[in-house]
Computed example of a mutant assay.
Amino acid sequence: MAKVHGKKFNQAASLIEKGRLYTLSEAVDLLERTNTVKFDPTIEIHFNLNIDPRQADQIVRSTISLPHGTGKTKKIGAFTDLGNEAELKAAGVTVAGAEDLIDSVAQGHIDFDIAIATPGMMRKMGKIAKILGPKGIMPNPKAGTVGEDLIAIASEIAKGRFEFKNDKHGNVHSIVGKLSFGNEKLAENIAFFVKTMKESRPSGVKGSSNFITTLFICNAMGPSIQLDVNSL
């Protein structure tokens, strides 16, 4: 059954020409005009990639720090065996600990949006991997959330660094800021994300076909605007 949208959504969607590929400046300009909410909406970006997610050498997974951040702050949980909990909290970490934090998570207490850990703690976190893993917040070296210098890692996350990865359908869904950023900053964030995505092309993707098949941006709860990938 087709999804039924409200009057405001349909009015906003009528401003977008069906089947048209918009330039970045045109698409960003439409974000303001197609906003359907009274609060400051998050701007989403949606990639469909020419990959086979079943193949290990075609997985897309990387980290990015947008030029102007995302407009969102994340609560950080730090698993450390260095006895530097106080320093980590002073650096902006929400909660820090060692085995005590592992036990707390095992009991269902998760007061953070992203987890970081020292290599030593990773060996002890097996019993909570099934809890953090499905939530997408288990520390991972590939995501840059495992290391000895957790203060530096936490600082990068506080500045807006985050991970992106493909889903089982070969899509990557993420955010590029808030509508209040304005056209210039949003355009710079989007262009930077597209550049980073192109640089993240897996070695297993061969041939000259486009790596990015389709690319859309939208306001949260708003209609999608398709960008001309070749213009970026």
Rank of each mutant, 00 (worst) to 15 (best):
V176F: 09
R201L: 02
F162V: 05
T214I: 00
M197N: 05
A220Q: 15
A187M: 04
P202Y: 12
A220G: 13
H173R: 11
K178P: 00
E163G: 01
F164M: 05
V205N: 05
F181A: 08
I212T: 10
I225Y: 05
N166T: 11
N183G: 11
P202T: 12
E163F: 07
G182F: 07
T213K: 15
N210W: 02
G207V: 05
G177T: 03
I217G: 07
K159S: 07
G222E: 03
E199N: 13
E188R: 09
F192D: 01
E199R: 14
N183D: 14
I190V: 14
V194H: 10
A191R: 13
V176L: 04
I212F: 12
E188C: 04
L186S: 04
K198W: 11
S180D: 04
A191S: 14
M197I: 07
E163Q: 14
K159N: 08
M221E: 09
K168F: 10
F181L: 08
P202Q: 13
F193S: 05
A187F: 05
S224C: 04
F192W: 03
G182P: 03
I190P: 01
I190K: 04
I217H: 08
S174W: 00
G222A: 04
V205I: 09
E184M: 01
K168Q: 14
T213D: 15
S208E: 15
G222L: 04
A220S: 15
F193P: 01
V176P: 06
G222I: 02
N210A: 15
N183Y: 13
P202S: 13
S208C: 02
T213C: 02
K159M: 01
R161C: 00
T196W: 08
V176R: 09
G177F: 08
I225T: 05
D167A: 13
T214Q: 07
G160T: 08
K195D: 15
K185H: 06
D167Y: 11
K165W: 13
F193H: 10
D167V: 10
G207Y: 09
A220N: 15
E184K: 12
P223K: 09
F216M: 12
P223T: 11
L186M: 06
E188A: 13
S209W: 03
M221H: 05
I190S: 06
D167C: 12
K168T: 13
R161S: 06
S200I: 02
R161Q: 08
F164D: 04
F164E: 03
K206D: 02
G177S: 07
I175L: 12
K206P: 01
